[in-house]
Simulated scan of single mutants.
Amino acid sequence: MWIRRSAFTLIEVLISIALLSFVLLALYKSVSMLRSSNRHLFHYLERADNEKEGTETLFLDIAGSDGNLTIAGDEFSRLCLLNTVNSLYGLPAAKVCWVVSKSTHTLLRSEGDEYTLPLRSDDFVEVDAVVEGVDLFRVYRKKGDVLVLLRQKGRDSISFMVRGVPEILKKKKKKTKKKPHKQKRPPGNPPGNIPATPPGVSKPPVPNKPSI
């Protein structure tokens, strides 16, 4: 015996659509959360990769220098290496400076032949943004050891030391020995204690020896 089933009513269709919309909304939220977590993870890995690459470049810059480097700055250190073989642009010997921008707190690396800071309009220099959001950048040197401290805002600080950096020895000026001061004799005064004959007075004649 066949039982004929009636079609869905309008209320059942509306209830099905409502349930389906709830399921789709939950799926959309889960997909959105997954995308957001992936985006945060990508940014974190990208920042970590940039930080690692930047610290490696800084390490190689210091290790490849001839030891002639200057450290200055107040809030952040400013490191300039006058001659390093670690060039990113194919220079045989490059001058490299590491500076933190006070407006954006970005660690910048400049490379060129000969230039001064602040840069002039005719300086040909390559500038790269290495690490963003820097709140600590200090460089210290003691003889052949160079210590670097770097930290991004909200993250743990990174520190490393470069050993064996050549030292630039300053040449000491030779001290000239002072010669003893000789007292000047008045003109016409012969050496010794014998007084000189006053000018204008002739010496008395020496008598001849009597002949025997």
Results as ranks from 00 to 15, higher is better:
R4A: 14
R5D: 14
S6Y: 12
A7N: 03
F8M: 04
I17D: 00
A18T: 08
L19S: 02
L25K: 02
A26S: 08
Y28M: 09
Y28N: 11
H43L: 15
Y44R: 06
A48I: 01
K52G: 10
A63T: 03
G64F: 13
D66K: 14
G67T: 07
A72S: 14
G73R: 10
L79R: 03
C80A: 13
L82F: 15
N83K: 10
V85I: 14
V85S: 05
N86F: 12
Y89R: 09
S101I: 00
T104R: 10
H105F: 01
L108Q: 14
R109P: 00
S110V: 07
D113F: 04
T116M: 04
F124Q: 12
V127D: 00
A129P: 01
K142A: 11
K142R: 08
D145A: 10
L147G: 03
L147Y: 05
L150Q: 03
L150E: 04
R155L: 07
P166R: 01
K170C: 13
K171M: 06
K173Y: 12
K177R: 08
K177M: 01
K182V: 15
K184H: 08
P186I: 13
P186D: 14
P187F: 11
N193Y: 02
T197H: 08
T197W: 09
V206A: 03
P210E: 11
S211L: 10
S211E: 15
